[in-house]
Design a protein around this nucleic acid. Structure first.
Lengths: 330, 330
DNA sequence: CTGAAAGCGCTAACAA
DNA sequence: TTGTTAGCGCTTTCAG
C-alpha cells in the first residue's frame, strides 16, 4: 500500500490509528491513497503488535432470545469504535466451553465477555488474567474481572410474592440442571430457585415447596411441569425460571386439560417477545438484556484501556404482569 | 517456547502442523515440552503466514432458532479439526451487513459462510474472490461460491397444496420485507411468496391470492395476520413464511375471537421446537438446519483445501402436519 | 532429519 | 514532521 502511494508505512499507520504527529497535508494524502486503493489494515498483523480490535463473546447457545438482546446492547455500545463483537458458542458442558474460550484467547481477542459460563471461578480468573474479561449473569465477586448481572434474587422474589399475593399457596418451581463447577450460589438458576424457597418459607409455605429440576428450554419446561402436575394435590401456580421453560409448562398445562390461569397460573423469567403475544400473555420478569450487553461492552472497553480494578454492575428487574397469572380457583 | 525446551522453533511448528520430516524422538520431545509449558500457538501469527483456523459465520441475527440448528450442524462438522466457527451479526440492512463481512475479511478468516445475506450477487462474488465462501439460503447460481439451500419452492408448494387439499380456497400468505439488492428470485422469502402465488394460480385460485408484506418475526406475523383477517371475506387459512411469523399470526387469530383451526388454519415454515408444543401444534415445513450447516462446513473446508469449482447443495424439505391446519368450516 | 534465516503486515522507537 | 528500522510469533525455504 505505502509504496503504491508514495508515503511511508509509518505515515499510513499513524493516520489509521489517528496518532499524534502527522501534518494535515500528509493525512490528506494518505487518506486519499487509502480510498483509492481500498486499503484495509489486516487485523492479524495489528494483533501481532497490539490489538486485534476484536471482542470475543461467549454465548452458551443461541436459542434464547434473551441473548439476542444482550448482543444488540453490546453491538450498539461498540458502534463508533473499531471493535467488533465475535460470538462463539460455549455449549452445554464445561469441557466444550473451555475449548471455546481457549479458541478466543488463541485468536488474540482484545477482551472476552462470557455469558452465564459454567466454568469455576478459578478458571474465570485464569482467563481474566490472560485477557480483559467481563462475566455476565454470574453473581460471585472477583477482583480480576468485571461482573454484570441481573438481580435474580429480586426478580424471583417479585414473582413468588406476586403469586402469594394473588392467594396461591401451592406454588411450584421449575429449575435448570447444569454441569457447572461454579459455586451453586453463583449461578442464576440456583439463585432463582433458592430465592423461591426462601420466600416460600418466609410466608409459612415451607411445606408447599415443590421443585422440578429440569432444563431452561421448551422441552425441559414441558417435562418439569408434567412432573409437577402429577403431584397430589397439584400446584395452583408454576414459576418457571425462564420463559422458554414457561412455554413448555403452558403446553403441559393445556395438555392436561387444565386452563391458564383459571386452574393453574404460570409465570416465567426473561420477558421475551413471545411472552407478550396476546395468546400467550405470560407474566414474566424483565431484565433488560440490551442494558446488560451495553454495560458489559462499556466495562470491557474500559478494561482494555487499562482499568484493573473490578467493577460490578447489577440491573434491577421488574415484573410484567400479564394474563397467565390470576388468583387460584377458590 | 522453543528456547525453553531446547528445540528449534521449526521443530515445534512442524509438530504442531503434523508436517512431514520430524523424527519420532523429536516429536515426543516437542510434545512433552508443549504439555509442560501449556504452549498454545497464536492464531494471529499463524495467520500472517497462512491460516488462522477461523471460519467466519455471518448470521443476520440470532433470534431465529433455525439458525441455532445451522450452527450446531456446522460445529459438529468442524469438530475434530482445528477450525473454529466465529459468528458475527449481519443486521437488518445491507450497509451494516457489509461492515460485518468486511470485519471478517479484515481478521483474515480462512473462509466465510453467509446465511441469508442481503447483499447483491456481485458483492457476494467480490467476497468470494477474497476468501473461500459458502452462501446459505440463497438460490442464485455463481461460479465463485458454493450454495447450500433449502428447496423453498418445494416447501412452499407442500404447504399450499396441503391447504388446498384440505378444501381451503381463501388462503393468504405473510411474507417478509427486506432492504436487499439481490435479485428478488434469489431470496427465500420471495421464492416462498412466488411459489404460493404460482400454486394458487395453478389451482384456479388466482382471485383468492392475498399477501401481507410484513416481517418474519412475531410482531410482523401478528400485524400481517391482522391485516389479512380484516379483509372481507377473510381468509380461511394463513400460510406464514416462517414459524416466528406464524406464532404472531396465531396470536392475531385468537385475539380476533377466532379458533385455530376451526375458523382459520395456520401454517409456518422452519419447524422450530416451539411448533411442536402441544398447545401450539403448528403445521410447518422442516428443513433440517443442522444438515445445511454441516454441508456448509464441509463445502467450505473443501474450498479452503483448494477446490475452486462451485458446488450447490440443496435440501429437500418435508411437511410436518399438526393440529393448526384442518378443513375449513363448511 | 534438523535448524538457521527470511519475511508475512503491522506498530513503536528512534534518527534524521 | 517524517521515514528508517527492529521486532511481534509463526511458516517456509534452504543449507547443513
Amino acid at each position: 500500500m505505502a509504496s503504491h502511494a508514495q508515503v511511508s508505512v509509518t505515515a499510513v499507520s499513524k493516520v489509521i490509528r489517528n496518532a499524534y504527529g502527522v501534518s494535515p497535508a500528509m493525512r490528506d494524502r494518505v487518506k486519499t491513497a487509502i480510498e483509492e486503493l481500498g486499503y484495509r489494515p489486516q487485523a492479524v498483523a495489528r494483533g501481532m503488535r497490539g490489538r486485534t480490535f476484536t471482542i470475543g463473546l461467549m454465548l452458551p447457545h443461541i436459542r434464547n432470545p434473551f441473548f439476542a438482546d444482550i448482543l444488540d446492547g453490546l453491538t450498539e455500545q461498540l458502534a463508533g469504535t473499531d471493535y467488533r463483537a465475535f460470538m462463539i458458542q460455549g455449549g452445554a458442558t464445561r469441557k466444550v466451553e473451555r475449548l471455546a474460550v481457549d479458541a478466543l484467547i488463541d485468536r488474540q481477542v482484545d477482551g472476552i465477555i462470557m455469558v452465564a459460563p459454567l466454568a469455576s471461578k478459578a478458571r474465570l480468573e485464569e482467563v481474566a488474567q490472560e485477557k480483559p474479561t467481563v462475566v455476565l449473569a454470574r453473581h460471585e465477586r472477583s477482583s480480576f474481572y468485571d461482573s454484570v448481572y441481573d438481580d435474580d434474587e429480586a426478580g424471583a422474589e417479585l414473582v413468588v410474592k406476586h403469586l402469594i399475593e394473588l392467594g396461591h399457596r401451592r406454588i411450584a418451581h421449575i429449575t435448570h440442571q447444569d454441569d457447572s463447577q461454579a459455586q451453586p450460589a453463583d449461578l442464576l438458576h440456583n439463585i432463582r430457585a433458592a430465592t423461591y424457597e426462601r420466600v416460600m418459607r418466609e410466608h409459612g409455605l415451607a411445606d408447599e415447596i415443590a421443585v422440578a429440576t429440569s432444563f431452561y428450554h421448551e422441552k425441559g419446561g414441558y417435562e418439569g411441569a408434567r412432573e409437577l402436575l402429577d403431584r397430589d394435590p397439584r400446584p395452583t401456580a408454576i414459576f418457571a425460571g425462564a420463559d422458554q421453560a414457561a412455554f413448555g409448562a403452558l403446553a403441559a398445562v393445556y395438555e392436561a386439560g387444565l386452563r391458564v390461569p383459571a386452574d393453574v397460573s404460570v409465570a416465567g423469567y426473561d420477558n421475551t417477545h413471545l411472552a407478550a403475544l396476546p395468546n400467550i400473555t405470560l407474566t414474566s420478569v424483565d431484565q433488560e438484556g440490551s442494558v446488560m450487553g451495553g454495560a458489559a461492552g462499556k466495562l470491557l472497553l474500559e478494561r482494555i484501556e487499562g482499568r484493573t480494578s473490578a467493577v460490578r454492575f447489577s440491573v434491577t428487574p421488574s415484573l410484567v404482569v400479564r394474563g397467565s397469572t390470576a388468583p387460584p380457583a377458590s
